[in-house]
Amino acid sequence: MTLMPPLSTTDTPLLQVDGLTKRYGSRIGCLDVSFDLFPGEVLGIVGESGSGKSTLLSCLAGHLTPDLGRVAYDGRDTLTMAETERRRLSRTDWAYVHQNPRDGLRMGVSAGGNVGERLMAVGARHYGGIRDKASDWLGRVEIAADRIDDRPTAFSGGMQQRLQIARNLVTGPRLVFMDEPTGGLDVSVQARLLDLLRGLVRDLGLSVIIVTHDLAVVRLLAHRLMVMKGGRVVEQGLTDQVLDDPQHAYTQLLVSSVLQV
């Protein structure tokens, strides 16, 4: 796959996850998940609905508190650090792209304000500077400059999703969590969004954890793949290896269930 963004050569992981477990009462959210994520690496997590993908992502991003296990970002334990620090990380070093852009955007605030919010949250106090940066980012996600003062309610689904991405990337995060970023979009819009994402990931050297049930998305974006079922990781490896030569029965089922057009 020559189109894939190149893997960086650093050998210290950006994110280390060890034995992560989250239960909802007696039910399992996710069980004993461990992996390392290296700088510039894109990790795909696939599995059917209810397999614990989103629970895992929420635990990693600090939206949920796991019951057991350890998450270290850049060598620092994110579960024991002060909430101030974790929230600062989540608006500077991290980004979270929701499946539904309405969850990640402020619908009552203009596109420029949405992109500028994170800048203002980290102390930007120059209106002209914020606006320049916002219009630059709108350009990067292919939103026309004259839409900067429109509210997201006036945008199409694909535009809203691109706006959400711009809003998240404007502070130059190093780690991006994506929860089904292409869900609910039609195929041609999906293709453009994937193209855009791939370009951004490559240009900015982002580390990404992308949760999806769409195998085509991980085929295009992810270096490595984790397959989850019933809260457990059943198989992981390089994307092409897992998709072309699935070992676990569930992965084989998953791969063979994709409709061929």
Binding site: V109, G116, M120, R125
Partner: peptide, 9 residues
Amino acid sequence: GLMHVKLYE
């Protein structure tokens, strides 16, 4: 930061 979003708007 949100307070400034209002002023930005």
